[in-house]
Amino acid sequence: MAAQATSAAAPETDAAGLGKARATAFVTPALLLVGAFLVFPALWTLYLGITDYRLTGIAAADPQIVGLQNYTDALTDPQFRNALALTLLFVLGSAIVGQTVLGFSIAWSMRAVPKTVKTVVESLVLLAWILPSSIVAFLWIAYLNRDNGTLNSVLGTSGFDWLLGHPMLSIIVFNTWRGTAFSMLLFSAALNAVPPSQLETARLAGADTFAQFRDVVFPHIRGHVLTNTLLISLWTFNDFSPYLLTAGGPNHASETLPVYIYNSALYSGELGYGSAISLIMLLINLLIAVFYLRLLKDRRS
């Protein structure tokens, strides 16, 4: 059998002549840092979750193995279930509905507007995304303020306290505002990649806007929709900024899982219990991520 060798199959050659030893030395520092501050904490959660580790007191000095106690505690704790339900609502409302719909709508409309309008809109959306979270949290506290807030004066609802009256709605709208940029950027890129010739063909065949979208655009961006949904779900699920707005209140009404972990583990000091919830969160993250990676792999092959 005659062997075939294409130049593409001529594999990744060590173009600079680095050599395996030097290459290993190059990779090691990054791996050490990632190992210590990313991998190890994740694995340690497995152990911490089965102990009664506390920040102070006897259990701090000599933690005991308590088995699955923390997990059964968590799963039966109405506070935890409340947090989980609120988190799902938060992800569904702000990421899957809010950011996706708004992000796509903006990306879609920006194809048909003058360049200045496009620049202004995109800059505003991006600004909301890139500003540090403690700044935007305060901006929203001011914006939603009961007596002097801009929102109340625009809507004529002076005297209404949004963060107390509708805490979940507030953080959902806040996070939609904050995170739409990603969906907008991703969908703009995806829409740009739709071949104009296909759209023209559809137009020549007499397709209206909706038919063009359904038959030409959507098949092209289907993968992006899924990618976008999974990524923003993952990030929103792990988003800590609601804490900056409401700290989980009033009376746990906006206490999403990240806030719940902080409040129960670091604020109240129940580290073992907090680790158990952390692990549950990690597992949910893993689920979304595996689903996402499988998708990426399918698309590459």
Partner: peptide, 11 residues
Amino acid sequence: KAYAGGVVAVN
């Protein structure tokens, strides 16, 4: 020149 995978590019 043979590659690790058994491909013989130059024989």
